[in-house]
Amino acid sequence: GGVGMATGAYVPSKAVWLPAMKAKGLEISGTFARRGGAIHMDVSLTNKAMSVMTDFAIQFNKNSFGLAPAAPLQVLTPLSPNQTVEVSLPLSTNGPVMKMEPLNNLQVAVKNNIDVFYFSCQYPISMLFVEDGRMDRQLFLGTWKDIPSDSETQFQIKDCHLSADAVCNKLQGSNVFTVARRTADAQELLYLSLKLTNSIWVLAELRVQSANPNHTLSVRCRAPEVSQYVCQSFELILRN
């Protein structure tokens, strides 16, 4: 839960990215959220050292989707011992691109008056799902058929007790759009689309059976390396 709830989008809870013992007393925990069409890195900085910390700045390494700070890290007053400050850093997707492993890995450098510290974190790929990700129905059918079935990624979402309506609503809260719905052979088939910030389209079919809490997700994408991350993100969205 947390800050992203107003739009219904999935937001992971904050995790410790940099423990104080690895950063001369600076502890950083954080999460990522998409709010009002903009991506934010929401961080808590805690001073667990015995002296005041000042002069904070942040930099990202090249990453798969060109994420970069869109503004300086604003820590307006010195951080006293035992003090925590919450900062919401807006991010752009116009930074330098380099494919990372895993794809959603982000390497970060943070400096203060004491030293420079480095850590890695992973962002939910769903924060890259843009608001205009509903694909035209004719384009969906054509694209689905164009992408060979052997590059389809299948994934089981187990023990999910949501109705097809609830699934559609929950996914739409994270910019996954229902292009069409059909009932066939006692299954509800949902045809879904999303678009990533780098304009990669992802098409999906989710099979929901009313008597079975295990749903089958099939994903087709012209950049098939993103499919497994999208599958995992659907599971996180539907479970939260």
């Binding site: 129905r137 059918l141 066939a184």
Partner: peptide, 20 residues
């Protein structure tokens, strides 16, 4: 939904996927 042939195409796709 508009009957522009797409409804039918989605129905065929769903049938085909549900009964491969």
């Amino acid at each position: 939904e508009l009957d522009d042939g797409l409804d039918e195409a989605f129905s065929r796709l769903a049938e085909c996927r549900a009964n491969p």
